[in-house]
Design a protein around this nucleic acid. Structure first.
Length: 84
DNA sequence: AAAGTGACAATTA
DNA sequence: CTAATTGCCACTT
């Protein structure tokens, strides 16, 4: 299985109200140093089954999302009960 | 095969 | 606190 597939699978299982960092996803996917790659995957991934808005940066900030920037991402997370 | 891409991370100033 | 720097990796051209 490709790294990207594993990453998506993991992210798709993030329970509502919690978040993972890109680093964490990378680690769970089997490659602790592929945090960068995780971001790349999310940006190109169009899978609606994957709540990629629940993936944030390890420094606690939101990171990017799509064209709208991180605004929509932050909004979504706040509605799910995540403090940013 | 080599170079380019990007929603990251850790360090330093 | 922000900004710049360097290293990093999967994937695409």
């Amino acid at each position: 299985m490709l790294f990207s597939e594993r990453a998506k699978k993991i992210v798709s299982r993030i329970p509502k109200g919690s978040v993972l960092t890109y680093k964490e996803v990378a680690r769970l996917a089997g490659n602790p140093k592929a945090s960068r790659a995780v971001g790349t995957i999310m940006s190109n991934n169009r899978d609606i089954n994957v709540p990629c808005h629940r993936v944030i940066r390890s420094d606690g900030r939101a990171g990017g999302y799509n064209k709208d920037g991180s605004r929509q991402k932050i909004a979504r997370l706040r509605e799910e009960g995540v403090f940013l």
